[in-house]
Write a protein that binds this DNA or RNA. Structure first.
Lengths: 243, 243, 243, 243
DNA sequence: TATGAATGAGAATTCATTCAT
DNA sequence: AATGAATGAATTCTCATTCAT
């Protein structure tokens, strides 16, 4: 067995090497601007070899994501298992999310591309669904933490636990994204300490769940879309704005 | 003069037509998957003609972004000019940001996708700078609103006005993005009313600027980077996580 | 109009040029061994240009066939319209078929590949069907000739007209193929005069339709397949044969 | 010796296994669309192993052909040895040819597809010569049968024995091919009983060798090629045809 | 002897950009 | 100014063959 075992392990380790290289290259250039040739060069292999391990460029890319999700999930779950208050747990989870993005910067880039929808159509929906499911796990745990906090009276919010987690997640995500190196939207974000920035937002938000200061209305049931004047004519837009 | 004037106006209007078409197509397909041919078809012009108005695909794309930013900027500034409290103004600004994304969905898509890094060299730096400047305007106005609020004691935060705005902006951005149709990350975001969701986050955050409940530490001067153990070896990562 | 007309004509003539070049190259090398690059070189165009006229290698190839069928069809129909006896008409049709294969050698190659099944799966079935239909026309006319000959007593055969034409066609086809330059099955075929060879077979066969010498049984309704001992084991085969 | 003998036998049997597998796969997909990997899988061996037995893909393919030819040859010769009239022998030979194509369908497929020209350089000339020689054997015997028939007055033809066999062979080949499952040329061939169809043609042709009804001119020495107007200009062709 | 990982030349196709008309 | 035919570099993916183990 040891012989086939060793081969198996070698094969896996080669797979990992490719993933590592792919990470670096995809990160530097983005999905579209990365050629398989570049990945091959990065890991000192021939182009064809990549296809022994991943059946297409997309598959390679998505594998990156799957690996990443598992890591993120573990990092968050680990925090949630610690004996802390709900607030502390949630903050720890946000911190884990943040740490993940810093430690595994490249993985985060890949997430972002998915979130931005840049991959839909390019990859088997099946595979994307699998990622969705994997991603939901950490989310589920956080929901439980919130549910208990509400039950215990630690949180006074009228929102459903799921909504609480969504708010936390969405704002952290935005914060992390804005502070990212590649995000060129605003120069000024370069000046802040990303971690503190993210955590401050989370704390602020959580505070609003503990007190009953903020007027809360139900968030679900997407009432009526604001988007009444859907238009794509630039000129009309201009007028509208100027009035 | 009237003859050259008319020509000028015609030229501009043709430019706008191209931009409109480009918007639609870039939105539908993303930057990479959009061929100039497609844009040409969409606006019933020949491919070659596009190059009379925009010197490259990238330039066309960036012009789209610039237009969008200007619109967004105007929408925000308009709100800030209204006679409201600081909190109300900020909420109105967030609302304007949200409305923009709904009204000018395509423009927002284009924003999200932009990776300015990939454009340098392909687009005049001048143009890129113009975008940065445009983006900064609304931001600046919001900063002023916050500065006054702090001065008046409406906000009790220790953070600098700029940081307040950044927090607001980042979390709104994250919220809007997560609720976007193309965002594949979590199904559950489809269930919420995007506007209420975004505004609830903003209100929660602003609340934390008004009270002094949240422990605040300086955000700026990225003290020491968290990212000490930068690594790209997936296997090591596993270990790290499991301990 | 003359301007767009001229352009139209130029476009068509360019298309024809490509077809001509493709014919030569596909003939020299066969479908699989022909690279688009080679076709491009042959007609002094860039690779990409080919794709303006034919959307894929297969499409280019099949277009060759379609053109060829039309020509063949015309050649045969022309013969059938002459005021001749049934026998003479059929012989003239066979001769036309033969002439076609000599004059448009390349086209014939393409037919052969279709007949051999080398294309199925590679080209839209729809397109192949269109070819079938086109091909059936000449056949239909020949059937009518035979039908009349039988009615008039010129032919004494008990077979249906369709079967007569099939026999004639099949044996001519085999003869033409065997005499083909590329057919390496037998050296000796190089020694005969292809035309005489083909015509001699046709005459012999037709003779057997005129006299009632040959025992004729119904050809239709594929009775029971001979293939009882289907096997693909080479070794068993050997044994079977040796006994 | 027994040990090296056993080895030898094992080696040969392994070779046969590979051939069997190759047959199946080449038949299913054709030469070009068959990857060595597929053959390897089919016979549960590693790709590299195939190269111990056949020095290239082409060589493997040609070996298949060679095997097939030998089988066909044996089948025909067996018939010719029976105590029958010349006509009966020839018909039996045609029947054997037909049976071969039904029994060893895959082999026949391989025959049909072979384009020996494409193989020169990739396969030992020696091997190609062996094939030519193998093919000639059955042919030679049939020639002898015909020669005797002519001498005995059973056949009244003026053609040389070789030509008679060629005619028989070519028309049978065409008939068999047209009735083949993969032949896309004409739907109608599906309706006939292939065996009866082939045999009817053969009988008709042989009949014309027995009587002196058909005007016979020498077939050999390809007098003057018909193909005088060799052209590859499609447009000229059109004109030619329409006149 | 058998394996199967690695190779790298090569093929089809796309598309931004140019330029003659 | 507008056109759209032509270009050819670039990209993804395949697969026959080799070779270290």
């Amino acid at each position: 067995m040891s012989i086939s075992e060793r081969k198996e392990r070698e094969k896996e380790s080669r797979r990992q090497e490719i993933l590592k290289a792919a990470q670096r290259v995809f990160f530097r250039n983005g999905f579209e601007k990365t050629a398989m040739e570049m990945v091959a060069e990065e890991c000192q292999l021939a182009k064809g070899t990549l296809y022994r391990y991943f059946k297409s460029k997309e598959e390679l890319y998505v594998s990156l994501v799957q690996d990443g999700i598992e890591i993120l999930d573990k990092m968050i779950v680990r925090e949630l298992q610690k004996p802390l208050s709900a607030e502390e747990k949630l903050l720890a989870a946000v911190k884990a999310h943040f740490d993940f993005t810093q430690l595994y910067h490249e993985h985060f880039m890949v997430f972002k591309m998915i979130d931005v929808g840049a991959l839909s159509g390019k990859v088997d929906q099946e595979k994307l669904d699998a990622i969705q499911r994997a991603r939901a796990t950490a989310f589920e745990r956080m929901k439980n933490v919130v549910a208990e906090a509400i039950k215990r009276g630690e949180f006074k919010t009228k929102h459903r636990p799921q909504e609480i987690v969504m708010m936390l997640w969405a704002s952290s995500f935005g914060a992390i994204m804005m502070c990212g190196e590649k995000c060129q939207q605003f120069e000024m974000f370069k000046e802040v300490d990303a971690e503190k920035f993210v955590m401050r937002i989370a704390r602020g938000l959580i505070e609003s769940f503990k007190t009953a200061n903020v007027a809360e209305e139900p968030l679900s049931h997407r009432a009526s879309p604001v988007r009444t004047k859907k238009t794509d004519k630039v000129s009309e837009v201009e007028n509208e704005v100027n009035i």
